[in-house]
Design a binder for these strands. Structure first.
Lengths: 149, 149
DNA sequence: CCTCATATTAGAATTATTCTAACTTGGTTG
DNA sequence: CAACCAAGTTAGAATAATTCTAATATGAGG
């Protein structure tokens, strides 16, 4: 068995620019660049995206990446702690992860559960009051809920 | 068996101002003023509150109100549709219901899950972009996440 | 190559919520 | 009042998202 490992087809030698980049990011975050973390990082890496754990798991399976749902959850949380992803809370059931870690806001369509980015310099929030004693503001989330109409 | 019905102690004749008020609200919303809806409305009615279904169910049980968790969920959703409550999405696991239906915002303490009201005329949100074609803004949610620090 | 701390995994467990199908009840009508 | 029935309530099962567990695999260093 060569050119393959653990049942996964693997390009023998050369690594893509994408995977090099992903490996560097992981290392910088203190995460071992394992097969599944690299694969997930690449799936997430290209364009700004909003994913759920289930959706990413599906996508990975379709791409032939052998990864369990538990690992997808672990990885999404690790990436979030490392600052590579943002968790967006818009639905009290599902969790979305956003590859755009810059400060920005979202439209959220309640009908189809779709998230749409709003550039960070668009919405202005002012007169935010000081938090209670001993507390510090972590971040300010703005979600604009929309529906057909 | 008198002065009691279905195991619940009931003040025989006179109705409190609170319960009259609650009954009126329910009727206005097109909801039949049943025993459990009235009881829940009264538990919610006094002061502005943030409750979860579980918490309200506990509270009702402690108050000797015979109500199932399913009914608490049904009732919270009916009240929300009727505009008597607002559902606040801050946690992707739990749902909070807010008796303050006016436009206002919240501090959310990630450490203890507590919600704190911010008066509606405090935070200013401006430059909200127009929603995509065919969509209308339902509401704009602002959540200020805080932690010890 | 060996080792071992770190990762991954399948499947069970947990949690919040919704569903189902049977049983009440409140409001009406004769 | 007595019976009726649509609307409401219920216990418990079902679902869905997520986390946990305990066993196995793997990557990096010696």
């Amino acid at each position: 068995m060569s050119g393959s490992r653990n049942g996964v087809p693997v390009k023998p030698s050369r690594k893509s620019a994408r995977s090099e980049e992903a490996a560097a990011k992981l290392k910088a975050a203190g995460l071992r660049p394992t097969r599944q973390r690299l694969a997930l990082a690449q799936l997430l890496g290209a364009e700004h995206r909003h994913v759920t754990a289930e959706a990413l798991h599906e996508e990975a399976k379709r791409a032939g990446v052998p990864v369990s749902l538990a690992t997808v959850y672990n990885t999404l949380h690790q990436f979030t702690h490392a600052g590579l992803l943002n968790q967006v809370v818009v639905d009290s059931q599902r969790s979305y992860f956003d590859t755009n870690t810059g400060s920005h806001q979202h439209f959220f369509c309640e009908e189809n559960g779709e998230l749409i980015d709003i550039p960070g310099d668009t919405v202005q929030v002012s007169k935010v009051p000081p938090p209670p004693k001993g507390m510090a503001v972590d971040r300010v989330d703005v979600v604009i809920r929309i529906r057909r109409g």
